[in-house]
C-alpha cells in the first residue's frame, strides 16, 4: 500500500498528496501525521494537494480531521495548492473546511505559517 511521506522542514511538516487516496491510505496518513507532529514537535503542518484532481466528501472530511488532530497537538494546518475545480466541487458539496487555513501555493503557505508563528511569539512576549 502506498504511504504518503511526511517531510520535515525546520519546524514544519509537509505532506504532498500525489496519489488518489483510498480510505485506508487516509487513515494511515492521519496516524503517521499525528505521530510525526508529536515526535518532531512541529508547529505547523502543510498539506499540498496540487496534484489532487478529484475530491469527494470523504477527502474533504479528511482535511478537516487532520486539521483538528494537529490543532490538538498545537500545530496549525494549512492546505495549499487547491485546484479551482476542486474548490468548486467542495463548495458544491457544501464543505467549507471551517477550521482549515488555506494558501495558494506552498511558498505562501510557509509564509503564512511564519507570519502566524511570529504573531504568536509576539503575543507571548507581551
Amino acid at each position: 500500500m502506498d504511504r504518503v511521506p511526511v517531510l520535515k522542514l525546520g519546524d514544519i511538516l509537509i505532506v504532498s498528496i500525489q496519489v488518489d487516496l483510498q480510505d485506508q491510505g487516509v487513515l494511515a496518513l492521519q496516524e503517521d501525521l499525528a505521530d510525526a507532529v508529536v515526535a518532531t514537535g512541529a508547529r505547523g503542518v502543510i498539506i499540498d494537494i496540487t496534484a489532487v484532481e478529484i475530491v469527494d466528501s470523504f477527502i474533504g472530511r479528511m482535511l478537516a480531521t487532520i486539521a483538528s488532530i494537529s490543532r490538538m497537538l498545537d500545530a496549525e494546518t494549512i492546505v495549499v495548492g487547491m485546484r479551482p475545480a476542486v474548490a468548486i466541487t467542495l463548495v458544491e458539496l457544501g464543505l467549507s473546511l471551517g477550521g482549515v487555513r488555506t494558501a495558494l501555493n506552498l511558498e505562501k503557505g510557509v509564509a503564512l505559517l511564519n507570519h502566524l508563528g511570529g504573531a504568536q511569539i509576539a503575543t507571548t512576549a507581551r
Binding site: 479551482p84 476542486v86 473546511l97
Partner: peptide, 12 residues
C-alpha cells in the same frame, strides 16, 4: 457566496 467560498478554499 459560492464563488467567495471557493476562493477562500484556495487561500484567497
Amino acid at each position: 457566496l459560492k464563488t467567495v467560498m471557493a476562493a477562500r478554499l484556495m487561500g484567497a
